[in-house]
């Protein structure tokens, strides 16, 4: 396996991980009250403010993260496919094809999440 397809395969895996992380980040409750950094303050003020239902733009945050994750995932499909046009030794086809499929699965998952 030559260096360049190897690099792209690894980079694609990083992108897939990044996309998954971004999507996950979008689901995290960013309420400052629940932040671990505020543990000391919470102890001092035991009566927490009512966080209320998730409010805009918080509701948009998940969508923004998922959409950016989708862009990253589409990039993760594109790169190994472009490399496949240039490098087609069996091992390269196998590795690049596998990561491209993994990226495609991520695209599918994120598209579904975005539609929900």
């Amino acid at each position: 396996m030559r260096f360049e397809p190897g690099f792209i395969a690894c980079y694609t895996l990083v992108l897939i991980g990044g996309a998954a992380g971004l999507h996950r980040l979008g689901k995290v409750d960013t309420s400052p009250w629940r932040s671990r950094a505020l543990a000391g303050y919470r102890r001092a003020v035991p009566d927490p403010p009512d966080p209320g239902p998730p409010a805009w733009p918080h509701t948009e945050s998940g969508r923004l993260h998922t959409l950016m994750a989708l862009v990253v995932a589409v990039a993760a499909v594109t790169l190994p496919l472009a490399e496949l046009l240039r490098y087609h030794r069996p091992v390269e086809v196998a590795v690049l094809g596998t990561v491209a499929l993994a990226a495609a699965a991520m695209v599918l998952r994120l598209t579904t999440a975005l539609r929900r």
């Binding site: 960013t30 409010a55 805009w56 733009p57 918080h58 923004l64």
Partner: peptide, 29 residues
Amino acid sequence: WTFIRLGARQESKSPTPFPHRWAVLFLVA
């Protein structure tokens, strides 16, 4: 983000619609 969240909490109390959704989203970006 907290700043914007705080703004959102206030915004949700307003009986009139918040006119700057897209300007604030650019700030989120």
